[in-house]
Design a protein around this nucleic acid. Sequence first.
DNA 1: CTAAGTATGTTATAACATAACAAGCCGGAA
DNA 2: TTCCGGCTTGTTATGTTATAACATACTTAG
Lengths: 163, 163
Amino acid sequence: MTSHPTGFARHDHGLCVTSALAAADAACKARGVQFTAVRRRVLEILLEAHAAMGAYEVLARLDREGLGSQPPVAYRAVSFLVEQGFAHRIERLNAFVACSAPGVAHSPVFLICRACGTVAEAEADLGSTLGAEAALSGFMIEQTVVEAQGLCPACQPGLEGAT
Amino acid sequence: MTSHPTGFARHDHGLCVTSALAAADAACKARGVQFTAVRRRVLEILLEAHAAMGAYEVLARLDREGLGSQPPVAYRAVSFLVEQGFAHRIERLNAFVACSAPGVAHSPVFLICRACGTVAEAEADLGSTLGAEAALSGFMIEQTVVEAQGLCPACQPGLEGAT
DNA sequence: CTAAGTATGTTATAACATAACAAGCCGGAA
DNA sequence: TTCCGGCTTGTTATGTTATAACATACTTAG
């Protein structure tokens, strides 16, 4: 049983990958969009990594597996996943990460560990705070990006233990 | 007298540029760092634009003025300005914008108008909300990026008036 | 003056992203 | 069945953003 940090808590990673793929599969069927081999494999790759991956990094994997070798292949796949809410783009890193709560409407906050690259997806209701702020000036918010960088529990000095 | 939106409110832009430059000048003297011609000019360009500008866009200006023609020139200047707190990087746009409150410690929130490209810098205390969220999982935040995209008052349909 | 540190000039290349068009697949209408 | 229309993929080419690396010049303190 593989165990990785998520939200910096341990869990059965193999299981979470499987169920996320199944959820995506179901969502695609429901929406009448195609969950093709490349798209499925890219989501799987992102889920397994459980960290942000650049498009070219994903592409390298696809290439090795004979699923595509040119940039558009990777970009199309991750774009699809982001559109469908199965993955998110991390602006700060120019990278992509699997969504940890697909299907649920959310305005995610990303906690990016600068040491190990792990990205945790938290939910913080910044929308209301931000909305109030924006309303004062008449700005109409359509979308927000919130990304925090720092150190995850496992990478903080003097804290690596508690295994 | 030139008048531009800032924080989507009108103000004397010429004056704000002048005073921001003066403030930067003073800060550099106080810190013992050099406010060279290129650095000064880049800050001025960003202040005048009052919108996010890409590094290559800044570079094009510098080139026309004989201040430099290669990418590193622009990147070094904007990096300096960001380090000193005179400008910010907008991750979402891969662009840079002059800081509207240099010298004041702040965790800015950017309101990016997708129509006109204007970037307003708001202050929202998301740090505390976020910090609490993160503390639950043991994550230690070092830096946060908050960027909202939408429409500024001037670009919202049916609102462009009130001139 | 000169040495140390800082800044700039320049070349080259890395890393990230998309435009544009051809070719294949697949399902439904004729 | 055949054809068509929409979607997906293959491929070439290029555009955009960013930095490594090293040479040169400036600035300032001793």
